[in-house]
Design a protein around this nucleic acid. Structure first.
Lengths: 211, 211, 211, 211
DNA sequence: CATGAATGAGAGTTCATTCAT
DNA sequence: GATGAATGAACTCTCATTCAT
């Protein structure tokens, strides 16, 4: 009689393989770049042999694409749902979404995907298109929609949507790149935490710089 | 009237070679990344043979470093001089500097160097330190100084310096990455020009989003 | 009766590879010199592809070093043992050792290593030191000891040790170089075999040239 | 009226060029080996530019051959003349010739040629044949002739010519290789000078080792 | 004639990918 | 399915040789 409860460890491992490989690929691609990461390293980090990687992904390129696809659009939907059911002032929602994005995406591994997409966009045009369609444009539409809501309700001044969207996205991107490119080498010293910085930037954005 | 006896072509070429090679390297490294660019391609684009590259730069790494050094620190000094001799409201100066930086650095070839530094920082820690010392920190100090001036003169509200600096830099970096990563593939459709966008973002920053 | 189930060929090859590569390297380095031998040739002679060589030795230099270490110091110990357990006249022992060394080292592939060490000593100072420590000095000590024994027992005249050691080693080295440098091209015609020549030289050494 | 006494310095240089180049080539080929010596190094050492070398010798190979030819057979003739006109015991003549060869050939630059011929014989078969014809065989014939003279006059025992010739040449070759391969790196310590060693070896050869 | 900038064939080395075990 | 030994295309770099100046 086969065990009813747990799968055999070997089986469990096997099911987890693709995810483990994608995680390893993500970490290494972000840290060292796509070209500078050897496929054997990815396999080793996932705890398997070189050849095993190729049982799951037919090439390094495909591994990269799978890794990007796996780690992208997840949080966009969440944020959209949050936005849809929100009532009251938009400013607070935005602040909340910014912090949530940073905590879940920017600061974590998914943030690395954003960095690496910027870098490799030229080498993976189809992926770049995919990224724009699935990430950039939905995000811009989501934020753009919020700004329109805020303007309609009178919470916000009449501002150009496109520029405002850019201005809201830019700080997070900046922080992300600082973190993933120069972050952990003690090269970059900040007096405020990332969260404090983002919050302060949001306040500035809302109230403006002029006295 | 041009000189009747020009320098011998051979000699003229020799003097121009380093610059030609650096230009070729810049273009290719920005377009394809450091690792994905073959040194022979750089030579070919500069119109010379493979071996000639190595007469001027002892390795691909050194070529990269030279290319970075060549294209950085040039415009920092200019901006600092502009700021030092400026009188009157800071806001206008900032707008002006933003546009100037975009025109001279962000939009042009030097902007590509910023992108590529993000990518290769981890692979060239020594160069990353150089970049932070020569580019990032001076820029932050320059902009931070302007904000302090504005606050002392009463032009600006009392704002946290660090967050404000980040918020001023972020839009330019964002635009730069859009341009250099997704720009010339028709993937990214904008309704405003880069200059208009930056200007609109500056206005937003000054006046704030809230009604 | 051979075993019915032999080890898998793939595995068998793997165990044999280092030795096969060292043998190929020895043959080619001796024949053509270190620099003139392409690493791909070594691989080809060992029956593998270029890349395979680098799975076993990280560089051509390391391959060379491994090849030298592999082929030295082996026979010194044998000779020393032979000498230690010998009783009776030294002259016979010397004659015997000379012939043994020629048969096992000088004439064979190991002899080529001696030749190649002469050539490459300047390019591998660390290896030259190793060779002096492991081969030259032990040999000199061994032979010097025998001469002292012969002098103490009254078999030999009172002779200067150092000069005598040199004089005993020289003929073998000379023969070795003749063989490995001009040998198999039909350039060098001898009327006596190497063994006869060495024996005759030994006799001469013992009895002297004068009437 | 042209100068009667000295040629113009430029002219003097030009005439000396070939010799200077050959000297430089000799020194470097002996020190580093043929393959490891770059032709530019040879030119630099001769105080000319890379291209100039090729005005005198059409290739690195030809330079090598010229260098060998230049430095070979010179002293054989001298020794032969010395031998021809010698009267009295052969032993003294041999001792004298040995010392003279060491002083003029073995120890000096020509000695290096002998070393490098051993090494490169396989890569330059025609040169090897030339070397055998012009150096090895005349030397052997010269020494062989002396031994025959000594035997005929009763000064020497009846010995096998070939073996005796080898035995007389071997010590010098041994010394030469020690000197040129391991010599100037402090790796090889001797208590006697080369001249003393050769003299002691000659005595040993004459009187034999046995009591 | 001398020069040295330029060349490009060729060598060492790496690593994505394959496939026998 | 998993493995890792083997492969060879591709890449960086060197250096003998050429030739315009």
């Amino acid at each position: 009689m086969p065990p009813l409860v747990t799968a055999a460890p070997r089986q469990r491992r096997k099911d987890a393989r693709p995810q483990e490989l994608l995680d390893a690929a993500l970490a290494l691609f972000v840290e060292k770049g796509f070209a500078a990461t050897r496929s054997e390293e990815v396999a080793a980090r996932a705890g398997v042999a070189k050849g095993t990687l190729y049982r799951y992904y037919p090439s390094k390129d495909e591994l990269f694409k799978a890794m990007v696809r796996e780690n992208l659009s997840v949080h966009i939907a969440e944020s959209a749902a949050l936005a849809a059911q929100h009532e009251g002032p938009i400013a607070g929602l935005m602040r909340q979404m910014m912090q949530a994005w940073w905590a879940k995406v920017g600061h974590g591994k998914a943030g690395g995907v954003c960095k690496i997409m910027m870098i490799e966009a030229r080498n993976f045009p189809e992926l770049a298109a995919f990224y724009i369609d699935e990430v950039i444009e939905p995000s811009q539409r989501l934020i753009g929609g919020l700004i329109e809501r805020g303007m309609r309700s009178g919470e916000f001044r009449a501002v150009p949507i496109e520029a405002t969207v850019h201005l809201l996205i830019a700080p997070m991107l900046h922080m992300l790149l600082q973190e993933h490119s120069f972050g952990d080498q003690g090269l970059c010293h900040r007096t405020m935490s990332a969260e404090e910085l983002l919050d302060a930037q949001m306040s500035l954005l809302l109230h403006g710089l002029l006295a």
